[in-house]
Design a protein around this nucleic acid. Structure first.
Length: 419
RNA sequence: GUGAGCGUAGCCCAGUGGUUAAGGCGCCAGGUUGUGGCCCUGGAGAUCGUGGGUUCAAAUCCCACCGUUCACCCCA
């Protein structure tokens, strides 16, 4: 027996109620803020990720699905979607449009990791990106929009963690100071942190080990080492957030996993934490487009994991609209009525009525059971008598009331019932 | 990559060495020769994750593998 590959899963119809709900909230949010949809391929040139997300991060070093196609071209299943969006922005000359260009996406991303709570090898991201504008007001708007997204879903028990990690001018200086601070404690560091010291020093700050946290507490804080421009930008973001009454927590230990971030970084953290809990995160990436061969182009964006959102919706036991049920179920007796029923079903569907017709020549009782379990609003019953009278029985499945309706009027009656 | 827990019908699960592996949900049929939901009756559905071992005897004990869940790492 075949199974879905490790870390992947099928989304069965009942589950799709959640997915539809989240996707509809996401698209209407984007409409509200002026973001337009963009779809990019599931796989890309591997270099698109290795160059941008950058070596030193686990995503590139060990988690990418990389393969050669038959021509020897090195491809990768997309590990995230910001780089593909930037690639499309450059490829199609979107920098010629009025800036910023605001785009959103919903789709799968792939990382080869050990699956666990809220973490999968194929997961789905909803994200939006504003390209071509450096204004800190846009950072604030992206954060506000992220917050509105979760509120519109009915999720409000989260905090927004905010930090600035500087730019290519000021960050190297900070990293140097940070390394110096840690180099005097190397004997007390956990093995992971020893590796981080050389590989990814920013990550030292959020190690969970208590011994390492002691050292992190006394570590120099990045906001104290920002250059004047980054400082002003960071303050402006906070000013605009304040103006919109968006609560946030400054967290100087917040860093993001991807290497391309500059200045503003933020994460949405649920109050009730469990394992992989971050609902979403984002920030500014002013160097990414240039590193892909474009002109220096500032940009800011956000991405959320749909699986984690849905886990939270279930956890909060929020009522999610059910998937639509059929308007009518057609039951029949004997072959002559079946032929007529097929004809009626076809005509009703042309009139925009969702119809399921009984199949398999079950007893009428069996057909009615099926109508019930499908949740059909009405049952239509066709037998010899009805055919000779040119009518059909319309049964309201909720009340159990039923009466014969002339065949010519049945579509109109059901249309009324739809509303 | 490291560590821990768990694998019994589609789903939830009882069963810790001894007859045909129990129950609930769901599914199918009948009770109503043309009518669903409630109720009653019956039925189908399980190589007890896979392979090996211990034993007269294994779902049950041991080993390996696979899968899965959780944690670390990392991230959405």
């Amino acid at each position: 027996m075949h199974k879905a590959p490790r870390g992947t899963f099928d989304i069965l119809p009942p589950e799709h109620a959640y997915w539809k709900y989240v996707e509809e909230k996401a698209t209407s949010l984007c409409q509200l803020y002026g973001y337009q949809p963009l779809s990019t391929p599931i796989f890309e040139d591997a270099q698109l990720f290795t160059k941008t997300v950058a070596g030193g991060t686990d995503i590139v070093d060990k988690e990418m699905y990389i393969f050669e196609d038959k021509s020897g071209q090195e491809l990768a299943l997309r590990a995230e979607l910001t780089a593909p969006v930037c690639r499309a922005y450059l490829e199609h000359g979107l920098f010629n449009l009025a800036q910023p260009v605001k785009l959103y996406y919903i789709g799968p991303a792939f990382r080869y990791e050990r699956p666990q709570f809220g973490r999968y090898r194929q997961h789905h991201q909803f994200g939006f990106e504003a390209l071509g504008e450096a204004d800190p007001a846009l950072d604030a708007e992206v954060i506000e929009m992220s917050r509105q997204f979760f509120y519109s879903l009915g999720l409000s028990r989260f905090s927004i963690q905010l930090n600035s990690i500087g730019c290519k001018l000021c960050r190297p200086g900070y990293l140097e100071v940070l390394r110096q601070h840690y180099s005097s404690y190397t004997d007390h560091l956990c093995p992971d942190c020893k590796a981080r010291l050389v590989k990814n020093p920013l990550r030292l700050l959020d190690c969970k080990k208590t011994s390492c946290q002691k050292i992190a507490k006394t570590a120099p804080k990045i906001p104290d080492y920002l250059c004047p421009e980054c400082q002003l930008h960071f303050q402006s973001v906070q000013k605009y957030l304040g103006a919109m009454s968006i609560p946030f927590q400054l967290n100087h230990r917040l860093v993001r996993g991807l290497d391309y971030y500059t200045r503003t970084v933020f994460e949405v953290e649920p109050r009730e934490k469990r394992g992989q809990s971050t609902l979403g995160g984002g920030g500014r990436y002013d160097n990414l487009i240039e590193s892909l061969g474009g002109k220096p182009t500032p940009a800011v964006g956000f991405a959320a994991g749909l699986e984690r959102i849905i886990l939270n919706l279930k956890n909060r036991k929020l009522d999610i609209p059910a998937l639509p049920k059929p308007d009518a179920f057609i039951a029949y007796l004997e072959e002559e009525a079946k032929i007529e029923a097929m004809k009626i079903a076809s005509e009703l569907r042309k009139a925009g009525i969702a119809v399921i017709i009984a199949t398999g020549d079950k007893s009428l009782r069996g057909q009615m059971r099926q109508a019930n379990s499908l949740g059909s609003a009405y049952a239509l019953i066709l037998g010899e008598q009805e055919i000779s009278n040119q009518n059909i029985i319309l049964r309201d499945m909720r009340t159990g009331e039923q009466k014969p309706i002339p065949l010519a009027e049945i579509a109109r009656m059901l249309k009324q019932g739809q509303k």
